[in-house]
Design a protein around this nucleic acid. Structure first.
Lengths: 130, 130
DNA sequence: CTAATAATTGACTTTTACGTAAAAGTTCTT
DNA sequence: AAGAACTTTTACGTAAAAGTCAATTATTAG
């Protein structure tokens, strides 16, 4: 009973709007480990979710290396004290960075509002002039 | 009376933590237009503010082309109706994108909280085990 | 079974955003 | 005027993250 739901690589590329090359690249980089039937890749739901997270990380500007690092922690937090503390520091820095980025986004959203207003004003002018 | 405050290129590189190459690159790309005294660049406060905005755009993942486009609008919103509407559509899309990105950041912040918790748990274990 | 379709692999290319190095000009200081 | 410290221009280099292409396999429909 084939209950195990598998995704093919093209199903996922379509769902996420990425190329097969991209997913294979992520595999080469050790971010995902789809199963194989022969040489064909079979992606499980867990792989799919991981890909979602990878793409999310990518969207907010994480590098492959950073994403890999976060994934590592999920798989197994380091067993050594020093490593752990170092990791926590890194995590803290990342959070700071993300908060700054959030602020940048908020500011830019406001700026885009202004741009829109400028456009509307301009539109009104044009409308009147016609 | 030299009231006009000018910044040298290195002053700005120090303030913003970028290289001279970066600022010259932005000039080549038409993002900024510092004055010249001879061949030396002189940056005015307006240039400085513009650089701030460029770097902010960079931080949130805008490409040079996108940043240039936004700057253009500030300088002169397009005079033609069709252009204007197109621009407004683009602005709207950008805003959507930024909202999504903000959501990505929020989600990731929560995830980093989890990572930290995992670390703390691990730390406790190690502490007890010792 | 065979043609068509899909997937894999490996090599090479592209794009973006600068880095780097060389050679020469400019300015300030002593 | 000479040296130090900056700057400029030109040109080539680089890293990250894929894209593209070609040559092979695998799988599946008919």
């Amino acid at each position: 009973m084939q209950v195990n739901k598998f995704y093919t690589i093209t199903e996922l590329t379509r769902e996420f709007g990425v190329s097969t090359r991209t997913l294979r690249f992520y595999e080469d980089e050790g971010l995902i480990h789809p199963e194989r039937r022969g040489r064909t890749r079979l992606f499980r739901p867990a792989d799919r979710r991981l890909i979602q997270e990878i793409l999310r990380g990518r969207r907010i500007g994480f590098t492959i290396a950073e994403i890999r690092e976060i994934i590592q922690v999920y798989k197994e937090p380091p067993g050594e004290m020093g490593q752990l503390k170092l990791l926590m520091k890194r995590v803290d820095e990342k959070r700071e960075e993300l908060r700054r980025k959030r602020k940048d986004i908020d500011d830019t959203l406001i700026e885009l509002d202004n741009v829109e207003e400028a456009c509307l004003g301009r539109l009104a002018d044009l409308g009147v002039g016609t």
